[in-house]
């Protein structure tokens, strides 16, 4: 049962994130929406892991490993996006920041 609940929660997060990513013009909100979307996908992976659990195991370890890798990738993506945004706002204020 809990797997279904988490799967549905993941789907809801994916929906909210997708809406934010597509409908929000502000880059910062889009970055946050991307993280929501990513979180939703990881929850879906978690639900998949629970449903695919073998005898005696709480969950299938492969999707769990995928979630960990995915979080690292999403973190790197967020960092890159935020850095670009910071550089962009520094440019916008007319400050020429040193390379």
């Amino acid at each position: 049962m809990s797997a279904t609940l988490y799967g549905l929660l993941g789907a809801a997060l994916v929906g909210i994130g997708l809406f934010g990513l597509l409908a929000r013009p502000s880059p910062l909100l889009r970055i946050l929406a991307f993280n929501l979307l990513g979180g939703g996908v990881f929850l879906v992976f978690g639900a998949v892991a629970r449903r695919g659990a073998g005898a005696g195991f709480p969950g299938d370890p492969v999707p769990q490993a995928i979630i960990l890798t995915g979080i690292v990738v999403a973190f790197a993506a967020t960092t890159l996006a935020v850095m670009l945004l910071l550089r962009l706002s520094a440019e916008g204020e007319g400050r020429s920041d040193p390379p």
């Binding site: 889009r30 996908v41 999707p63 999403a74």
Partner: peptide
């Protein structure tokens, strides 16, 4: 932004296939 949207949709598909 386009690349991230693309990759996260791809990842969702991967979850469903798995």
């Amino acid at each position: 932004m386009f690349a991230l949207l693309g990759s996260v949709l791809y990842l969702l598909g991967v979850a469903l296939l798995y």
